[in-house]
């Protein structure tokens, strides 16, 4: 492992897990590939135990729609049984089905994060489909009833940027305790043109979030990827504090880069947990985090525009935004076995 004292690397405390890339919705700006890959439960179970022993204390499950993992209930029970706290991101559609399992494991539940795209039924359903707003509202009602802590996630686009305050007020009134905002990361030129904010607009959105945060009693914040014009440690992934397990059983640098739609590069993937211990994989992630941090600091020093926004910088430098170089078109996905040949097994 790199020297954490001299590198300012933090020990790994949180694991994000892409449980599945299957989703029942089809949001146009979504950055995940639309496939039907579920993380193997036995692999996850073993990884969680190793992670706990390595010092991980909390797990966040994402997707796709995490609840659609065929063994989601077992995943939650196993996480809680290992003494780890857990949270997950959901669109709310299937939430009632798993609420009883959350009751069982309530002591380990840190927070449920619901994705919202608008503060009104019309705005939300325009992106996610008819009836979705009412489903997510019903899911929040269940949280309120059972006393589950919950928050709201919103991807900020041209379409939603004007509703930051309205989303925050709605969330506060519904009993959420945090609103997490993220800048949209475009997966095609068309969506970039249609939905991306300019850097100036992104900075203005961040100022708006700060202003709303100062007024409301709940936290309203950009969770990651916000403007960081000075060199340093811009996020939990590059600080070393969080590592990501993707739905193919590979440890990667960051959940945002994982399974990125239309991506070419897979340099963020460091190890297959079928063949590498969690400890060794984390050490590789730390080395990669340090390298990427140095790369970003150098880009900032050179005045590269996208270096200010860490997620935009990482998507470009890890070749996730392949549409920016249209001469290269992805024809197929590299398989796990071709990335990690048998000879690499420990």
């Amino acid at each position: 492992m790199p020297d954490t004292a001299s590198s300012n690397l933090l020990p790994v405390k949180r694991l994000t897990v892409g449980l599945t890339n299957l989703c029942n919705l089809d949001c146009d700006y979504c950055l995940r590939v639309a496939e039907t890959e579920h993380l193997d439960f036995d692999l996850l179970s073993d990884a969680l135990e190793q992670a706990r022993d390595y010092g991980v204390m909390a797990v966040t499950y994402t997707g796709g729609e995490a609840i659609l993992h065929p063994r989601f209930r077992d995943v939650i029970r196993r996480t809680a049984a290992l003494g780890l706290s857990y949270s997950f991101v959901t669109n709310g559609w299937h939430f009632p089905k798993i609420a009883p399992t959350l009751v069982e494991t309530k002591n380990a539940l840190y927070r449920v994060f619901f994705s919202l795209d608008g503060a009104t039924e019309e705005a939300h359903d325009a992106v996610r489909g008819q009836g979705v707003f009412r489903k997510v509202m019903a899911a929040m009602a269940l949280c309120r009833f059972h006393g589950f802590p919950f928050g709201v996630n919103m991807t900020v686009t041209k379409r939603s940027v004007a509703s930051i305050e309205a989303i925050a007020v709605l969330s506060a009134r519904l009993g959420a305790d945090v609103v997490q905002l993220m800048h949209m990361l475009p997966t095609s030129e068309a969506y970039d043109r249609k939905l991306s904010l300019t850097p100036d607009e992104r900075r203005a959105a961040e100022r708006e979030a700060l202003a709303v945060n100062a007024i409301l009693k709940i936290q309203v914040q950009f969770a990651a990827g916000s403007s960081m014009p000075a060199p340093g440690t811009p996020c939990v992934s590059l600080s070393g504090e969080t590592v990501n397990l993707d739905c193919r059983g590979r440890l990667t640098l960051c959940c945002t880069l994982s399974d990125f739609r239309n991506a070419v590069g897979e340099g963020d993937i460091v190890a297959d947990l079928r063949t590498t211990s969690f400890r060794e994989a984390c050490e590789r992630v730390h080395r990669l985090a340090l390298t990427q941090r140095e790369r970003r600091n150098a880009a900032l020093a050179e005045g590269q525009l996208d270096a200010e926004f860490p997620c935009h910088f990482c998507t470009r430098t890890f070749d996730k935004a392949a549409w920016q170089t249209p001469a290269l078109v992805q024809l197929g996905r590299a398989t796990t076995s071709s990335l990690f040949p048998a000879t690499a097994r420990l």
Binding site: A138, A141, L142, F145, L174
Partner: peptide
């Protein structure tokens, strides 16, 4: 939304 034999309204 139903929770066992009760209903939660919003």
């Amino acid at each position: 939304t139903e929770v066992e034999d009760t209903i939660v309204l919003l």
